[in-house]
Design a binder for these strands. Structure first.
Length: 572
DNA sequence: GCCGTTTTCGGCCCGACTGTTTTCAGTCG
């Protein structure tokens, strides 16, 4: 439902833009869509309470349209608009170098309304003779169409991150490069990344640009200039590089990190101080410049404390910075326990001792062994009778480890299709910690799947709900859950919700995690490790929690271990 | 279409790159 409304507003914006409507009306629809997306809550719920106009960027007109659409399933405004501008024209905007003006041109001059008609016209050489077009523009559009056809959408964080590290090392090795930093959505640690934005500080840009566009994995140079170049790599990731003099590195990095909306906020703030802010400098009305070599100087100039990149989504961080109420964000080093990990007792690769050693190496003070319960056959789930033998092994390893690491016997118990749990209550009661998770029947109706999860939350033996929505990036959307109901129940029963740190899950996502915190729910950031190296994925989970404005207080396994253990004991 | 510590009307962020142009329009981030 949320996504449908957001898509609806974006479609209106696109069509208005092709129609040639004043840009600010278009921006208003996009801003409202962004704002609703960042809400993290249920739009229908806000609508039911008559609070739509309290959402920033949603005023009377857009609220009425949302109301009409929810109430009737239709929107007269959009229908009228589509009578003027074919709805399928928005497809064209996905093509690189093709914006609303050209889409309108192709439609009005050649009657093109969709991608296949566009491709036919481009191949027939019909585009080059249009005003403002030429042979190069035509072939760029063809290239854009081909790129679209093989596009793998946004790259998951887990794929973009390691490649970016390699690229940074490559750029650092270029003579004359004084600083290099990743920016963009990757620095903000968004779950998926469109392309890589990189900023380098160097006195002479040309050699850096040549090295960048000459990288061995580059298959296509999309643009090349003195301060900015962009390329496409063989594995379909694109990257752009800004090169500025080191004394301008701060403004450039701030700019390239975004988000766009965050940058707009900063520029508004700069204007109020009589300054104009760009990627190269602050500028006074008389034209003189204020240079910033570091990003901290940019924020300082605006009278703001440094805002961590993960917060820069225009979700209230600038207002909070002005008010001095930015949260002290959780750090990776704050996590003291791994509470979700698998061993050879189910589908893990390591035995209990090996996993314990791996956890110790990473500085953990506690480790929960949480193998799958029996009904998850594919994962070799434990039978009830296995639990006693597993407990004996855990006790033996604990004796070897002494006080260095506290082991907990737990399990990841399956929430069955009817909402009952895989193990009976007296078995769950014998365990130190219980995670309940959905793995199957994720396609159930909203009402049914929500009830399933609520039933698990209400079970007094359940401590944590694992990867609550079951989403898999990029292929599977999560279950259609009433998240607000989940948050309320979790808060009431003091059940923690997991941020599963695996980059293909990141579940809860950032927006949901923030709503959870606001609802008084505790989080648990877990890697769901099946091997030693999986334990290092914690980093991505912490980043997601930081995007949710999470402090150590919000996260169970960032508490001192004694507090965590007594919390668990108090629930047994 | 939205919004208010210069405003309830008149604003709404800034610059680089490219291609088609004889100074600029379109697109992108």
């Amino acid at each position: 439902m949320n996504q449908q409304i957001i898509d609806l507003l974006r479609k209106i914006a696109d069509l208005l833009e092709i129609k040639g409507e004043v840009i600010y009306k278009i921006l208003a629809y996009r801003k409202a869509a962004d704002s609703l997306e960042n809400l993290g809550g249920d739009i229908r719920e806000a609508w039911r309470q008559g609070k739509l106009t309290e959402v920033p960027g949603v005023g009377k007109a857009i609220a009425e349209k949302i109301d009409e659409w929810i109430t009737t399933g239709r929107l007269e405004f959009l229908e009228k608009l589509q009578a003027e501008v074919p709805g399928s024209l928005v497809e064209l905007l996905q093509v690189t170098d093709l914006g609303p003006k050209k889409a309108a041109l192709f439609w009005k001059q050649l009657g093109i309304t969709n991608l296949s008609e566009l491709e036919a016209a481009a191949r027939a050489g019909q585009l080059r003779d249009l005003p403002g077009m030429g042979e190069k523009s035509e072939s760029r559009i063809l290239a854009g169409l081909e790129a679209l056809a093989r596009r793998s959408d946004r790259a998951p964080l887990g794929k973009a991150w390691p490649f970016a590290q390699e690229l940074l090392a490559y750029l650092r090795s270029i003579p004359g490069v004084q600083q290099v930093q990743i920016g963009g959505s990757l620095r903000r640690m968004s779950a998926t990344v469109g392309d890589l934005d990189i900023v380098a500080g160097a006195s002479h840009s040309l050699p850096v640009m040549q090295a960048f566009t000459g990288h061995p994995d580059v298959v296509r140079i999309l643009g090349q200039g003195e301060t900015k170049s962009s390329v496409e790599f063989s594995h379909h990731l694109s990257a752009q590089l800004w090169v500025l003099p080191p004394e301008r590195f701060g403004t450039a990095l701030q700019y390239a990190t975004g988000s766009k909306d965050h940058n707009v906020r900063l520029r508004e703030l700069a204007l109020k101080k009589g300054l104009s802010l760009s990627e190269s400098a602050f500028q006074r009305p008389d034209g003189s410049e204020i240079l910033c070599a570091s990003e901290a100087e940019v924020y300082d100039q605006l009278g703001l404390p440094f805002i961590p990149p993960e917060l820069r989504e225009d979700r209230g961080e600038v207002q909070a910075a002005l008010a001095g109420t930015l949260p002290i964000l959780l750090e990776l080093s704050d996590i003291r326990a791994e509470l979700h990990a698998h061993t050879t007792w189910s589908d893990g690769k390591l035995d209990i001792r090996q996993l314990a050693d791996a956890a110790l190496q990473r500085g953990h003070k506690a480790l929960a062994i949480t193998d799958h319960s029996g009904s998850l056959g594919v994962a070799g789930g434990l039978k009830i009778e296995d639990l006693r033998a597993q407990r004996a092994e855990i006790d033996a390893v604990q004796a070897q480890l002494g006080d260095s690491l506290r082991l907990l016997q737990g399990c990841e118990v399956e929430i069955r299709a009817d909402g009952s749990l895989d193990f009976p209550d007296q078995v769950l009661a014998s365990l130190d910690i219980v995670i309940a998770s959905l793995h199957s029947s994720l396609r159930q109706e909203r009402q049914q799947v929500t009830q399933r999860l609520l039933k698990a939350i209400e079970n007094p033996h359940v401590d944590i709900i694992g990867h609550p929505t079951g989403r898999l990036i990029p292929n599977r959307e999560g279950a259609d859950l009433d998240m607000e109901a989940i948050f309320q129940a979790a808060a009431q029963h003091q059940v923690a919700l997991e941020i599963n740190a695996h980059p293909s899950r990141l579940d809860l996502d950032d927006a949901h995690a923030r709503r959870a915190i606001q609802s008084g729910v505790s989080l648990s950031i877990n890697t769901d490790a099946h091997s030693a190296s999986d334990l290092d994925l914690l980093f991505f989970g912490v980043a997601t929690a930081r995007r949710a404005w999470s402090t150590t207080e919000d996260v169970l396994n960032a508490w001192p271990v004694e507090r965590l253990l007594s919390w668990l004991e108090s629930r047994r």
